[in-house]
Every structure is written in structure tokens, then in C-alpha cells.
């Protein structure tokens, strides 16, 4: 009898844990939560390639590790290239092991973007996940190319004067088989997208928003709330792009129809304190432009 996979809106999250208790993550860390669900979806035949980022720290100190799968820690700019070599070698050796590069936004949009672009262009059979807390969190919250306009970091004490780099459209320009965005507040969405990505051969990319209590300056208990507000306000859009066909995720479709107030998302975070009305208007403008472009693309009218 054929096995029929029942697709539901609430996919089953596997019980197995690959992130053990007592990691050295900060309280309320959402990247820990993301990785927990990424690994649940990926399963045990997986190798994680991790460049310098919060994940290099939270796995613990040698010779112990808090992860139940092998983690290959590598230099900052090199994750996609190391994963490239690993994927080629596994293929040469006839192994189907999942190769997942798991990198922060600094390691992706800034120092690692060249290696990532190369790996995507070469059709590397791997999944690259950028967990995005919109700054260099591991070194104490300096601005990255992914920091949004107006956000205060230790190197933008007056608020960032530049827009967040549009990583996803750069990635989309590589026309890869599968790319998607998600947010730590929606673990089931993460599980579904990781499972789907890993069922496809070739280069896959996931960009996951990872709210960061100490960096974004909000109460640790509000990590899920802040993530949901990011999506509901439209500041963070969730979608999938298979080759060049875009499908908006339900949460973002809902946000497009009835968005939560942008101010609510900004107000809950200390990093946006003291924003001038002009800056808020500019943030709103770029957010609306992004949603407009995504909507048109999803409708096939752009």
C-alpha cells in the first residue's frame, strides 16, 4: 500500500531533541529555538556547518557539546564554501547526509555573501540557513548589513542611518530551486520549510528572523510576541519561492489584509527608542514597498 503523507496546517513536529538542555544561549534566545526545530526536521543524518556566530558559543565548551549531531565550526566568511566541499565529498562517497550551513546575518549578508553566492551559483546540494537577529549579536550587538533603518546598536548609537540589505532578492537572483523565509515565532512553519527544502536536490536557502532580547532590548519573555509582531505588522514577510514562483505564507497574507500597527512592533523594542517621525515614515514606506512587490510577484503581475 502506498504511503500517503497527510498535509495539514499544523505539521507534526518530531519528538527527538538534538539540542540538549543547558546550552549557553541567552535567556529568551530565539536562534536556539530555531535550530531546535531545524534539527528536528532534518533528523540525525545531518552535519551542521557553523561560522562564527552566536551558535559557535551556545553549543558549549570543548570537549563537551550540547548538540546531538556533528557540528563543524568554521571561519566567519567560509560557511558556504566549507559546506560546498563537504556536499561534494559526501556525493563522491555516495552518502546522502544533509549538509546544513547555519549562519547569522553578519556571516551571511556581510562577510559570507561572496562564498554563499558562489555556492548557490555552482548548484551546491546543501541548505543554507541565515538566522537573522539583525546585528552582530555574538560580539555584543554591532550593526550589520542586516540591521534595519533606525535601530540602535553599539556602532550605531544614534540609530542606523541605512536600510537593511535586501538579502532575499539577492538570493532570488540566483534562481535556486527553493528559498523561503520564516520566523522563530512559528516553529511549525520552520519544520515544514526545512523538511521541504531537504527533500529537494540542489541549493536551498532559508532566511529566518530571530528576535534577540539583549540586542533588541525587550523582555526575555516576549521573544515569541516580538516575532509574531514582526510578521503581523508586515515588517517581516514569510513566503516560499520555488525556482521563481513565489507563494506567500498564510501569516503574511493575513498581515497584508489586516496588519498590526507598525508602532506596536517598534515600541516594544528598546533599539528603536527615540525614533523620529520621519524615520518611522521611511521604515513604513520601505516595508509597504516590500509587501507591494511581494504581493505583485505572488499574483504574477510584476
Amino acid at each position: 500500500m502506498k504511503n500517503i503523507r497527510v498535509l495539514t496546517l499544523m505539521p507534526t513536529v518530531p519528538d527527538t531533541e538534538y539540542i540538549h538542555k543547558c546550552t549557553s544561549a541567552c535567556a529568551g534566545c530565539s536562534s536556539d529555538l530555531i535550530l531546535r526545530h531545524v534539527l528536528k526536521a532534518a533528523g540525525p543524518d545531518t552535519v551542521l556547518v557553523v561560522p562564527a556566530c552566536c551558535t559557535s558559543v551556545l553549543q558549549g565548551v570543548y570537549p563537551n557539546t550540547s548538540f546531538g549531531i556533528p557540528v563543524y565550526n568554521v571561519a566567519f566568511a567560509s560557511a558556504a564554501a566549507v559546506a560546498s566541499g563537504m556536499a561534494a565529498a559526501f556525493e563522491e562517497l555516495g552518502k546522502n547526509t544533509n549538509v546544513i550551513a547555519y549562519a547569522g546575518d553578519g556571516g551571511t549578508v556581510d562577510i559570507g555573501i561572496q562564498a554563499l553566492s558562489g555556492a548557490l551559483e555552482r548548484g551546491t546540494n546543501f541548505l543554507y540557513i541565515c538566522y537573522d537577529n539583525e546585528a552582530y549579536g555574538n560580539t555584543g550587538m554591532q550593526r550589520s548589513g542586516s540591521t534595519p533603518l533606525g535601530a540602535r546598536t553599539t556602532t550605531t548609537p544614534g540609530g542606523k542611518p541605512h536600510q537593511k540589505k535586501d538579502l532575499d532578492r539577492i538570493i532570488a537572483a540566483h534562481h535556486l530551486p527553493y528559498m523561503a523565509t520564516s520566523c522563530s515565532a512559528y516553529p511549525q512553519d520552520i519544520v515544514r520549510k526545512v523538511e521541504k527544502a531537504l527533500s529537494i536536490k540542489g541549493p536551498k536557502f532559508l532566511h529566518i528572523l530571530a528576535p534577540c532580547p539583549p540586542g533588541w532590548r525587550y523582555d526575555t519573555a516576549k521573544t515569541i510576541e516580538v516575532g509574531k509582531l514582526a510578521v503581523r505588522s508586515g515588517m517581516w514577510a514569510m513566503y516560499e519561492r520555488e525556482y521563481d514562483t513565489l507563494t506567500l505564507s498564510g501569516q503574511t497574507k493575513a498581515a497584508m489584509m489586516k496588519p498590526a500597527p507598525l508602532e506596536e512592533y517598534l515600541k516594544i523594542q528598546g533599539r528603536f527608542s527615540g525614533l523620529k517621525p520621519d524615520t518611522i515614515a521611511e521604515i513604513r514606506q520601505s516595508m509597504e514597498r516590500n509587501l507591494r512587490l511581494l504581493k505583485k510577484e505572488a499574483e504574477g503581475t510584476c
Partner: peptide, 13 residues
């Protein structure tokens, strides 16, 4: 590196 033997390579030391 071998998924059958999980471990951290080059982690904090």
C-alpha cells in the same frame, strides 16, 4: 565527521 558519532569540531576551547 560522521553523523553516527555526533560531536563538536573546533568549538570553544
Amino acid at each position: 565527521i560522521d553523523p553516527a558519532h555526533p560531536g563538536g569540531y573546533g568549538c570553544m576551547t
